[in-house]
Computed example of a mutant assay.
Amino acid sequence: MDRPHGPDGARRCRRRSAPPRGGDHRAGTSAKLYVRTGSALTWHDGGSTAVVPHGTVLSVDLTKVPGRNDVREIGVRFEPAAGAHRGSAVHIDDVELI
């Protein structure tokens, strides 16, 4: 984002993610949706969620985010499972502010 944005009354940011077929996805991979706010880019996330083959819904409760009217970044952080040793890809779709 090149300038501050607010969620315009939204209470939750939600994304769906899933590993692609044929990727090196392993049980134990986790992900968290985050927003960073203000000039200090303060981190707020919705907690870790296991990534499963059929897809995972990640969300952040925006009502609990101080500075939610000054969102500078929205992203997903993935943590590989123990034993993962190759790269893979992840599909992210259905991004919603609700």
Rank of each mutant, 00 (worst) to 15 (best):
M1D: 14
D2A: 11
R3Q: 08
R3S: 11
P4V: 13
P4R: 10
G6H: 07
G6N: 02
G6Q: 01
P7Q: 11
D8E: 06
G9T: 08
G9Y: 12
A10L: 13
R11L: 10
R12F: 03
R12E: 14
R12K: 14
C13D: 04
C13K: 06
C13A: 15
C13L: 15
R15H: 08
R16V: 06
R16D: 05
S17Q: 10
A18T: 03
R21K: 13
R21E: 15
G22E: 09
G22N: 07
G23S: 12
D24A: 10
R26Y: 11
R26H: 11
A27W: 07
A27Y: 10
G28R: 04
S30C: 11
A31P: 02
A31E: 05
A31L: 03
K32W: 07
L33M: 06
L33E: 01
Y34P: 02
Y34N: 04
Y34D: 04
V35K: 01
V35I: 12
V35H: 00
T37H: 02
T37R: 00
G38M: 06
G38F: 09
G38Q: 04
A40Y: 05
A40K: 14
A40Q: 14
L41A: 08
L41V: 03
W43Q: 09
W43S: 07
W43D: 10
H44T: 12
H44W: 09
G46S: 05
G46N: 02
G47N: 05
G47I: 06
T49A: 15
A50D: 09
V51Y: 00
V52I: 08
P53I: 03
H54S: 13
H54C: 06
G55S: 04
G55D: 08
T56N: 10
T56Q: 01
T56R: 01
V57Y: 09
V57R: 14
L58I: 09
L58P: 00
S59M: 02
S59G: 06
V60Q: 01
V60M: 01
L62E: 00
T63P: 04
T63K: 06
V65A: 08
V65P: 00
V65M: 04
V65N: 01
G67Q: 02
R68H: 11
R68W: 04
D70A: 02
D70E: 14
D70K: 04
V71T: 04
V71S: 07
R72G: 03
R72K: 13
V76F: 06
V76Y: 02
R77T: 13
R77E: 15
F78Y: 12
E79S: 12
E79K: 15
P80A: 14
P80N: 05
A82E: 12
A82C: 15
A82L: 12
G83N: 13
G83D: 10
G83F: 14
A84F: 03
G87C: 06
A89Q: 13
V90I: 15
H91V: 15
I92R: 03
I92C: 07
I92W: 09
I92D: 03
D94M: 09
V95M: 11
E96W: 11
E96G: 03
L97W: 13
L97C: 12
